[in-house]
Design a protein around this nucleic acid. Structure first.
Length: 273
DNA sequence: AGACAGGGGAGTG
DNA sequence: CACTCCCCTGTC
């Protein structure tokens, strides 16, 4: 296997992987090792060039959404100084196009959890249910296929806690083609469908829609986004998540989800500083 | 409204 | 150092 190279303009690998939207990656030296579905690839960036191996060029372009017109998207969401500052700070951050099933399970694990814990859950689920695989000398576990996460005890052993019942439930109710078919529905309808699933509320549904089903108007409101939105757009007034979502979609438009990612990353950064 | 569950951090001895 | 306590995090 050989390292391949593609041009990636208006793209920042570090921000894209580390902004909190995606969990299954590890940085080793100059490379990021990325698991998605049954794949493991590694990738590094040098200026406008992306070097990768372990996945096809087509996969990489789709995964990192390199086909999106970045300047147009940023132009649409760049409504004020707040966003402008975040966009300049994290220029090149793109949404990732994740596998819908893996994304759904990951975000069901995310409720009442933090990022390290979500990563742990996903890794343990992959070890318990995923097929063993290898790229080059690297051994790993593929993310388990839909339908295969089918044993409550083993799900609980992955330290999923009270979410184990939810995971078993979605595993029974959902498959790849069903999830992909949601992508053809209108946003509101697709969200309504997802929220019928156990462990899927407003926030998780919006994450799945945004990160894996191409609904870039979805605006997931978690504690960080709530904090940032109240501070910057509601004079610190107490507002409901519903009010925040409605405002955001009207204000940022059809790429509101991009604005959400910048605000989230910015708010997290402030906390760590 | 309060339980859920595990990581992490602050505080204590 | 070992320990306890509390906070964090969405869904039901």
């Amino acid at each position: 296997m050989a390292l391949r190279k593609i041009k990636a303009r208006d793209f920042n690998l570090k921000h894209t992987l580390e902004c909190g939207q995606f969990f299954r990656y590890k940085r080793i030296g100059e490379f990021y090792y990325v698991n998605s579905g049954d794949k493991l690839f590694r990738v590094k960036q040098n200026k406008n060039e992306l070097f990768f191996e372990g996945a096809s060029e087509r996969f990489i372009r789709n995964f990192f959404r390199l086909g999106d017109n970045y300047k147009e998207i940023i132009g649409k969401i760049n409504r004020d100084k707040i966003i402008n500052r975040a966009v300049r700070e994290y220029y090149g951050l793109r949404l990732i196009s994740q596998d819908p099933w893996e994304c759904l399970v990951s975000y069901v694990c995310s409720s009442a959890a933090n990022i390290p814990k979500i990563k742990l859950n996903i890794e343990l689920l992959a070890r318990a249910f995923g097929k063993k695989a290898k790229t080059g000398s690297q051994e790993y576990h593929a993310f388990p296929e839909a339908g295969s996460i089918n044993n409550l005890k083993k799900i609980a052993k992955a330290k999923t806690g009270f979410r184990c019942r939810y995971i078993l439930g979605i595993n029974r109710k959902v498959d790849d083609s069903y999830l992909k078919s949601l992508g053809k529905l209108p946003y509101e309808k697709a969200k309504e469908e997802l929220m019928k699933l156990p462990g899927v509320g407003e926030k998780v549904a919006d994450c799945v829609l945004l990160y894996s089903l191409n609904f870039m108007q979805a605006f997931p409101v978690d504690v960080w986004v709530r904090k940032a939105m109240r501070k910057y757009y509601f004079q610190n007034r107490k507002v409901s998540d519903e009010e925040i979502r409605n405002f955001a979609r009207a204000y940022f438009g059809r790429y509101a989800g991009y604005a959400q990612q910048y605000l989230y990353y910015h708010a997290r950064d402030l906390k760590d500083a």
